[in-house]
């Protein structure tokens, strides 16, 4: 993965959030959510700043960050694709969306979920509640339903064109 994806953390930003959201132990989740919404993941530096400047302990921060599926400890691509793996999506072929998107993003290493060029990260998420449009995926903010593998590829390519990203050129 490209080094450029590592976020540069500004201490003032983090301290600002602690000020705004609170520094008590119940602010753990919202604070981490704020960090992730800013950087796309939880940079270690940001976590350390939270621990040093609030009541949240290292054990709590790390425990919570690894517990909830929303949080990521590694940098992500510039855009995130969330593939819904709800029951309806599962029975109508969510797996195929994954296969087809990984294919055009050229992600073959099982351990990886981000394209080599740092463009997209594929996440599997629990149900996003659009079961009657299954299978569904969310590219950045756009919810797309009733997809086939090929339709998902088309949608991704469209998104890529609009955002100056490169995906493998097929179809």
């Amino acid at each position: 993965m490209e080094k450029a994806l590592e976020a540069k953390v500004e201490p003032e930003v983090i301290l600002g959030w602690i000020e705004k959201i609170g520094g008590d132990s119940s602010s753990t989740v919202p604070l981490l959510q704020a960090v992730q919404s800013e950087y796309g993941y939880l940079p270690r530096e940001a976590m350390d700043l939270i621990i040093q400047n609030s009541d949240i302990t290292g054990s709590q921060a790390y425990g919570v960050a690894t517990f909830y599926s929303q949080f990521r400890l590694k940098p992500v691509g510039r855009h995130i694709i969330r593939i819904c793996h709800g029951t309806a999506c599962h029975v109508s072929g969510a797996d195929r969306l994954k296969t087809s998107l990984r294919h055009i993003l050229n992600i073959s290493d099982e351990e990886q979920d981000t394209a080599e060029n740092g463009s997209y990260t594929i996440e599997e998420v629990a149900c996003i509640g659009c079961c009657s449009q299954a299978p569904v995926m969310v590219v950045s903010e756009d919810v797309l339903g009733n997809l086939s593998g090929a339709a998902a590829q088309r949608a991704l390519k469209k998104h890529a064109r609009q955002n100056d990203e490169i995906v493998t050129n097929i179809l």
Binding site: T57, S59, Q60, Y62, T66
Partner: peptide
């Protein structure tokens, strides 16, 4: 171990990490 550390000693050294089957204990981070 995590509990004696945090609950009794009031120290933050060990964390529960992950969830489900891959839950484990480790030093923070």
């Amino acid at each position: 171990c995590v509990r004696v550390c945090s609950e009794v000693r009031n120290i933050s050294a060990l964390s529960f990490v992950n969830r489900g089957f891959s839950t484990k204990i480790a030093p923070n981070f």
